[in-house]
Design a binder for these strands. Sequence first.
DNA 1: CCTTCTCCATGAAAGGTTTCACGTCCTGGC
DNA 2: GCCAGGACGTGAAACCTTTCATGGAGAAGG
Lengths: 333, 333
Amino acid sequence: MAKSEDPPRRATLKEVAKAAGVSLASASYAINGAGSVGEATREHILKVAAELGYRPNQSAKAMKTGKTGAIGLIVPDLTNPFFPGLAQVVIQAARAHGYSVFLTDTEGSTEEEERAVNLMIDHGVDGVIWFPIADDGPVGKLIEGVPTVVLDRNLPGYDVIQADYADGGRLAAEHLLAAGHVNIGVISGPHAASSARQRAEAAISTVRERGNLVWHVHNAYSLDLEPEVAKALDSRTATAVITGADLIAIGAMRHIRGLGQSVPDDVSVVGFDDIPWAQLHTPALTTIDMPVEDMAAAAVEALIRRMSARGEPRRRVVFNVELVSRDSVRVLT
Amino acid sequence: MAKSEDPPRRATLKEVAKAAGVSLASASYAINGAGSVGEATREHILKVAAELGYRPNQSAKAMKTGKTGAIGLIVPDLTNPFFPGLAQVVIQAARAHGYSVFLTDTEGSTEEEERAVNLMIDHGVDGVIWFPIADDGPVGKLIEGVPTVVLDRNLPGYDVIQADYADGGRLAAEHLLAAGHVNIGVISGPHAASSARQRAEAAISTVRERGNLVWHVHNAYSLDLEPEVAKALDSRTATAVITGADLIAIGAMRHIRGLGQSVPDDVSVVGFDDIPWAQLHTPALTTIDMPVEDMAAAAVEALIRRMSARGEPRRRVVFNVELVSRDSVRVLT
DNA sequence: CCTTCTCCATGAAAGGTTTCACGTCCTGGC
DNA sequence: GCCAGGACGTGAAACCTTTCATGGAGAAGG
């Protein structure tokens, strides 16, 4: 620290009141703009407070009011490029409403998720925005009592913000079919996530209608492919692959290239999410764009609403997705 | 919310004490493992507390002790892929020590930075880890009074965690020179950041010794290139480019490709930071690796130390960097 | 001139915890 | 059998704020 004088004590409201020659109550009212204080007095108090560099002690305030002015944001994995953009918007939107955000990263484990939630509740957040790892996290019950909005999963009882995953899956499949692909493989996200299942199911049923589903495997939301996924790719039976996430798509493209094949010449790939990497990748990835920023902002809005009106019926907001066509899909002639 | 019964009130310590038939003081001691409580009583109290689902009210605790158990992490821009990894490690390390972290993203503006810091101080963080945008942020004085460790910049008076930027710049330049490049351009990061200057200066002086510095321009830490940078690249006078960050390098490679040139055949590029994208990019980017995770962990360690021993002399830790050679540099024969 | 408001201002309680200072009881030493 | 001292427990203050209930003074109306 710059100075070693240990306690650069902050002025307390009592001190402000004394310095201003008014009562504690008046000082409080003046500073919070509540209660009834004469115009002149208020200004005087404010001036004195400013001089003393008064900063309200949030802990004390929180204790009285029960509101901490903090919200929690729980995401699975910050290094998944899907999340930073989300977090950024949440943080900004929250700040615009005067809230700070506790961010926590659960690193893909349900126990971490539970610990994270507990820590947050203990620290006294006013509300939580939660992007769950799986549908059945033990956390469902834990969050009881704290206003919560859930992203991505349609957890019963919570306010929910989602994208139209089924439509995304369908779009991806149709795009491939329209390009003349017949033998299509699907690498979907983890079984445990309903959003991943929805993407996959819609894609699969669309493929089945007019094409041929050659395989369907699962992979974590990661660049690294699991053995069964690698094996599926190794079989070279599909001319096109639908993936449950851009990260998986990129991992798959790497693997395909490792096989000596080319994307999109030999195999076409479509992703999901439209993370920033998607367009930077070579070839640029055709993918399903979700309006993450809008969703994040909506989550904050929903949380703010919920925090002030706890009784309201839950809401579920579903955002539209759209296919963005780039270079990873080959049109068969 | 799952239930609409408004207040699922949490048990208070007083209630625990009463239910256990002991005094408030004993209950407090038992739960905090301090003071003197008989083994039997302690266990009994703990049991009762568990039954009642007692969770200490952190606001009250914070008010008494002055410690909130929260730390703040201030980074410039979460969407810059350099930061999520850093944040993740900080969050984890902090949690391992029982701290929650307020994360805030200053979006590159110094005013935001100031607001963010104020909000954090008001919320009562016990300490702050700060990755400043510029050397002259107005924040230098603001943080006074809150234990703070600064990342990346050597701000006087603070505990500092850095990487050996000068060495990185030198390494990059030497790598290029060793590969036979002579006409070398430098795109460094923003003027305002001393770390960017150090990288550039070392690179430039090394280039000057044994090669030819054809131009030197600046760019924000972003994929988007500023006009003067584009102009420099357009001049096609350099066979190799040293950049102040991987993000800039990727932006530059895009631009170079747009010129109809190839990386590395026509122009070699070296980055700085070794962000996750670097190895995914085609061509994979040769860059300077900083041990971000270690630095993040060190920052938390340093902060913890500082929070418990405010008087200690400041420390500055400098991490070594190393060049990781990939495919974006051509060896001239 | 007196009553009745309204407007300002204040004292004091409350909120949940930690911790100091003190008291009681039992143990062990002589 | 007494006393010193340790172990265990307790009451109460303090932390800083919000907010309720109350009081006084001045203005307006009769």
